[in-house]
Design a protein around this nucleic acid. Structure first.
Lengths: 107, 107
DNA sequence: TTTGTTTATCGCAAAAATACGATTAATAAC
DNA sequence: GTTATTAATCGTATTTTTGCGATAAACAAA
């Protein structure tokens, strides 16, 4: 079988890239900031906060959910999204670790 | 004039997304890890480290340079890339700030 | 049961990212 | 000078992402 693209890099490299990419769109950053600010899992009125259509926002939420950053819980007709503390911690470790690893003494 | 896409979100949201997106590819993560490990600005032998062609690696380096994470300095026929400490610090502030801002008490 | 609300998904179009080989440009080595 | 080395860029093909309207699905309200 052909080599999967993922196999060209380490698990860690792939995971960092996957999480970074999920944060690599201003709408998704805005969603995260909104969820953090609200300090609780707010429902789909996220749509009302963003200058994008409902279906587009739904896609962004889906992507954040896919990589694990968000959890979505259905409550009646509404869906309640919130940050997954476990994955958030993972990001802290991965990004923090990466950033701390570099001590400037270049060039 | 039409609204630029950038204007739909705040400067901060756009900048976080831009930096995150630059890290949103395993090859670029690998480049950064390699530069950190070598602890000095190593030249284009980055190409030898990656399972990608020279032109593709060059493009990834260009992207990292575009957002400011890397600096490139020409030395003879070689080019020496290194992390820009200033932008690295900016990432620490932006990502660290974002991640620290969330205190789990959701759902 | 009918109607309204909310969210996910489908289908599609447009734009952007990824990857590579070939070529160019710049310099070093001879 | 000529030749070799290194890296950037060009052209192009493929894939992925982004975005939206329309529709569907699930539930609540009437």
């Amino acid at each position: 079988m052909a080599t999967a693209k993922k196999d060209l890099f380490t698990k860690k490299e792939n995971r960092i890239a996957e999480l970074a990419k999920a944060m690599g769109h201003p709408a998704r950053v805005a969603i995260l900031l909104y969820l953090i600010k609200k300090n609780s899992c707010v429902c789909g009125d996220i749509v009302g906060e963003l200058p994008l259509s409902q279906s587009t926002v739904s896609q962004h939420l889906k992507e954040l959910k896919r990589v694990g950053i968000l959890q979505g819980e259905i409550e009646g007709t509404k869906t309640c999204y919130c940050i997954d503390p476990k994955v958030w911690k993972e990001m802290e470790v991965l990004f923090g670790g990466l950033i701390q690893k570099y001590k400037s003494d270049c060039c």
